[in-house]
Write a protein that binds this DNA or RNA. Structure first.
Length: 154
DNA sequence: GCCAACGTTGGC
DNA sequence: GCCAACGTTGGC
């Protein structure tokens, strides 16, 4: 069974239009530097899983589109490159510390779903990103939560 | 292994 | 820009 994920990104750094403009509409979801999120990238995310592209730290935070996982967890290469934005001297190819997956754009939502709209749905109270103090950049969703979000009438 | 200090995240 | 919440670091 496919699983479902929420993947946060700051749109000022990289947004869903950038993803659409990629030649294959696919990128490595690089730069995650949190162990809990790392574990999910490395161990839990599989080809065929689905993910929301979530805008964090945005003027209007919320969900911009859907993606599919097209490559399961593999070492984040940026961590190995001195001077790279995501370089980490404690990660090396023999013992990689950080992982990423490849994601492919499925759809830019016709209507952006703001965080405020998610908050209005009682069925979504357990959603990770709605919990106070949540800072994880990768979080799981249930199939029910996924469907509920896509059915939201704005 | 505790915990204070510090840095980062992210909504507002 | 503020600040609450949380993760990480490092001294002890």
């Amino acid at each position: 069974m496919a699983r479902y994920w929420m993947m946060k990104c700051e749109p000022s750094v990289y947004n869903i239009q950038d993803l659409k403009n990629e030649p294959t509409q696919t990128i490595g979801w690089e730069g995650v530097r949190n162990y809990q999120a790392r574990n999910m990238l490395r161990d839990d995310m599989k080809v065929g899983d689905y993910a929301f592209f979530y805008y964090s730290n945005a003027k209007v935070p919320g969900i911009a589109g859907t993606m599919k996982i097209v490559r399961a967890g593999y070492p984040d290469p940026g961590a190995f490159i001195p001077g790279h934005r995501y370089y980490d001297s404690k990660s090396n190819p023999d013992n990689p510390r950080w992982y990423q997956v490849d994601v492919k754009l499925v759809k830019i939502l016709d209507a952006f779903i703001p965080l405020s709209a998610l908050r209005q749905h009682p069925e979504l109270t357990d959603l990770w990103i709605l919990r106070k103090g949540n800072r994880l950049s990768i979080t799981p969703l249930t199939a029910f939560q996924w469907d509920t979000i896509l059915d939201i009438d704005l």
